[in-house]
Amino acid sequence: MLEIDNLWVAINGKNILKGISLNVKAGEVHAIMGPNGSGKSTLAAVLAGRDFAEVVEGSIKYMGRDLFDMAPEERSKEGLFLGFQYPIEIPGVSMVNFMKTAVNEHRRHKGLEPLSASDFLKLMRDKKELVEIDSKLANRSVNEGFSGGEKKKNEIFQMAMLEPRLAILDETDSGLDIDALRIVANGVNKLKRPDTSTIVITHYQRLLDYIVPDIVHVLYDGRIVKTAGKELAVELEAKGYEWIRNEVDRS
């Protein structure tokens, strides 16, 4: 589904990602862990097409296509979803209007008719239950005045609405209390299908108790320095990032 080959990315001339290679197959859940400043969010942003960073070298293939040839909205319509670490507030734009526009763009891309207003509202209702989101939220402006937890739930709600093939969740657990974390994780798990993949980017292991990864990568200073099964997350939690730092420095 996603093949990243030797990806080098720079911001303002400074290399942030230094030769990342990563292969995500359909049905897999990958976790990318790493200390602050290791390049996790940069990777997520590059995948979604945010262009503050410059791709110096390397390639990314998504569903067999060159990802760099695709505009951000095209990536979205092709099923790539990014759960933002800091969801953006858009004053005056209601969630309903926002989601309706997005869903119908996705439908048009698939050659489907736009949803009728009543079908759309029904869809919203169904998906809202999934993430136990307050139904009043829909009438408010996008993310405006939402608490941290509400914003993150709102991201998962949008994911449910758009049914992506590849979901990239960037620090979706940060700022969540344990209940919200459980709700968010349940939402993600319920949305999981055999043909969809998930990349969970996180600092801590706790989210991975709920969203169980097949493969865990440790990103350190722009490189993937360790790849293993889910046990790696537990080990990392126990030994801390200092352990990675020492290992890297030794080699």
Partner: peptide, 28 residues
């Protein structure tokens, strides 16, 4: 806001539609 436009793009909304949405939201 470029971040607002990008957020819309990421949800599959084209830039021109995003500008329309944002401006209409602003004027709502």
């Amino acid at each position: 806001g470029e971040d607002q436009i990008f957020y819309c793009n990421q949800r599959g909304i084209s830039t021109e539609d995003a500008v329309g949405l944002i401006v209409n939201g602003y004027a709502r």
